[in-house]
Design a protein around this nucleic acid. Sequence first.
DNA 1: GTCTATACGAAGATAGAC
DNA 2: GTCTATCTTCGTATAGAC
Lengths: 196, 196
Amino acid sequence: MSSTTRDKMIAGAADLLSRRGVHATSLRTVVQHTGTPRGSLGHHFPGGKQQLLEEAVRHAAESVAVPLETLMKERGAVEGLQAFVGWWRRILESSGFEAGCPVLAVAVEPMADDEDAASGEHLRGLAHEAFERWEAILSAALRREGVAAGRAQRLGALTVAAIEGTVAMCRAARSTRALDDVQLELKTMLMAATAR
Amino acid sequence: MSSTTRDKMIAGAADLLSRRGVHATSLRTVVQHTGTPRGSLGHHFPGGKQQLLEEAVRHAAESVAVPLETLMKERGAVEGLQAFVGWWRRILESSGFEAGCPVLAVAVEPMADDEDAASGEHLRGLAHEAFERWEAILSAALRREGVAAGRAQRLGALTVAAIEGTVAMCRAARSTRALDDVQLELKTMLMAATAR
DNA sequence: GTCTATACGAAGATAGAC
DNA sequence: GTCTATCTTCGTATAGAC
């Protein structure tokens, strides 16, 4: 089934994106790391690297949104976020602080020809959609626990921003110290906000 | 004076770093954007691109730390941070959301041969030092206003992470909405922490 | 110190064989 | 569908002329 090859390429691209960034994620390294056939690239992604990375960002956005939403619904905002941070901690540690967030990579390192088409097919636009979706999941969870809409949205934005920033800082430091610090303060903040 | 050429190259490299990332910051584009002589590259930076980027990261770390420390001392933690966020908002808006943070770029997009030398001359290590310095400035300001050492450090980490993450998100969104949200919640949080 | 020319490698895209 | 080969472009690094 070629669908497996395609999916492996997308997942591999997302992983490389998170580790090395956009430019260092070459089509060659993607097929090398995934063990997928070279000649399939043109077939599955006629749009070339741009298309592959678009799918990779979509995939990454989903693979964060799904567990995030599950945790929020099963454990509530405060406990769910603790678990979500723990999920990131595991990614950092198990990769030796090599892996990070593919969406952040795309946001920070725009591709050369990002100014071509018209609608939201740009990588930057896709990164924006991912961030907004994660914010929305968090703010919905907070609203469910009685936080006013405006504040819930702001806290969602702060939480996403803090985690993205912290993951990058932890990679630079090769340590989870910053994540521990941020986790505790985020918990304090959300507990105060949801207290009735 | 050749020192001017050298400084222009460093500042230009830092700017390009913040806009396009590490790999897209080529030595060619640096001399193009700064209008500096090509042949001087080898003289001022015998270590090649690696050395130029190291100096650029050091320069960027400094150009954030100095105004941050000044604002903290002149206006205190809460008001100073408001002004600091305003400084970032101006950078985003005046660049059409093209510019960002050079240090974050280096943290997210490690260079290919980052595993060579022994000590802290790596770009990743320099990014780490920059983050830690900014954290320290913030936590020192908070301690000056009566916040306990441990909490001051955690709040410093959260603040740096939140601003770094938010700047990246604003670039993706081409909007300062997230920065406005985060600014307000950060202010609320710091006011509560410093209240006696 | 400044600049040009060149060497070398790597990446993306494409065409065509199996 | 899969793979190879090639074209073109771009980046770094180096050597040597002014």
